[in-house]
């Protein structure tokens, strides 16, 4: 299944936050959205899992506009891992992963053997098979993310959409979560803050800046010192990772880029 976002615009209270975004994720590809804070990454993702209705444009999954499907039909092909990661209610791991079956259940229908097998399988796949009865609030950040990924997998989706899945995770848990993501071999749209993580896990990157896509391509094509200076406003060298061969960005943490800082480009039209 592929995703095609065409001429997408999003507005909050009349103010455009995303305009004219066009991007494609091919079948089985991991497409990364990167960009500074407020560049519109989350807004784009929200239109895909139907939380935010586009002001204009279309979101196509295998040629079908998700906004012309019913919410339930859409939830059967797109599963989301939004940034909501806590609950004031005492939920168990099993409660949360079973939520993934919601799009498949009629009102009043109980859980059948299929649901239980799917939930158990999803928990197994993220290595949380033994945690079913545990309280979600007692889990570590990394464990929570794996449980939420299991919920998305229990939805049996064609497409996974993840909003900053590695936020607040330590390095090992980031590595584990991204490795899990690659193992799934599903069409995936993921926003990431960590450019080095994005460079090694994504097949293609789309750079968002002020609500527009300013670059698309493989990580090697996209992540250049010039782009990092212009979009992120930082000085950086792009090296080759000695272990993996992926692009490795070495930031200059002492001073921002001299040219095209975000403040000066903000004045430009």
């Amino acid at each position: 299944m592929n995703i095609a976002i065409e001429e997408l615009s999003v507005a909050y209270a009349g103010r455009a936050v995303v305009s004219g975004v066009h991007l494609i994720a091919a079948d089985g590809e991991i497409a990364g959205l990167v960009g500074p804070n407020g560049s519109g990454k989350s807004s784009v993702l929200r239109t895909v899992y139907r939380h935010l209705r586009p002001a204009a444009g279309r979101v196509l999954v295998d040629g079908r506009d998700v906004w012309e499907l019913t919410p339930v039909q859409a939830a059967r092909c797109v599963a989301a891992l939004p940034q909501e990661r806590t609950s004031d209610f005492e939920l168990t791991v099993g409660d949360i992963v079973m939520m993934g079956r919601t799009p498949y259940k009629r009102p009043f229908a109980g859980e059948d053997a299929t649901d239980r097998a799917v939930v158990a399988g999803a928990l197994e796949r993220v290595g949380m098979g033994a945690a079913r009865g545990r309280s979600f609030s007692t889990l570590s950040g990394g464990e929570r993310q794996r449980v939420l990924l299991a919920r998305a997998l229990a939805q049996d989706p064609d497409v996974l959409v993840l909003d900053e899945p590695t936020n607040h995770l330590d390095v090992l848990h980031q590595v584990e979560l991204l490795a899990l993501l690659r193992e799934q071999r599903r069409t995936t749209l993921v926003s990431l803050h960590d450019l080095n993580a994005a460079a090694s896990v994504c097949d293609r990157l789309h750079v968002l800046h002020r609500g527009r896509v300013v670059a698309s391509g493989t990580p090697r094509e996209v992540l250049t010192p010039e782009l990092l200076a212009e979009v992120f406003g930082v000085r950086a060298a792009v090296l080759e990772h000695p272990l993996t061969g992926d692009p490795l960005i070495a930031f200059d943490h002492r001073s921002p880029a001299a040219v095209a800082s975000p403040v000066t480009t903000a004045v430009a039209p």
Binding site: R46, Y49, R50, H51, T70, P71, V72, Q73, A74, A75, R76, V78, A79, A80, P82, Q83, E84, T86, S87, D88, F89, L91, D95, I96, M99, G100, T102, P103, K105, P107, A152, Q155, V161
Partner: peptide, 17 residues
């Protein structure tokens, strides 16, 4: 079931149909 999905938030609920 819909009530269950709301316990984590509106975005979660929307993602679950």
């Amino acid at each position: 079931r819909a009530l269950n999905t709301m316990m984590m938030g509106d975005e979660t609920a929307a993602g679950l149909g």
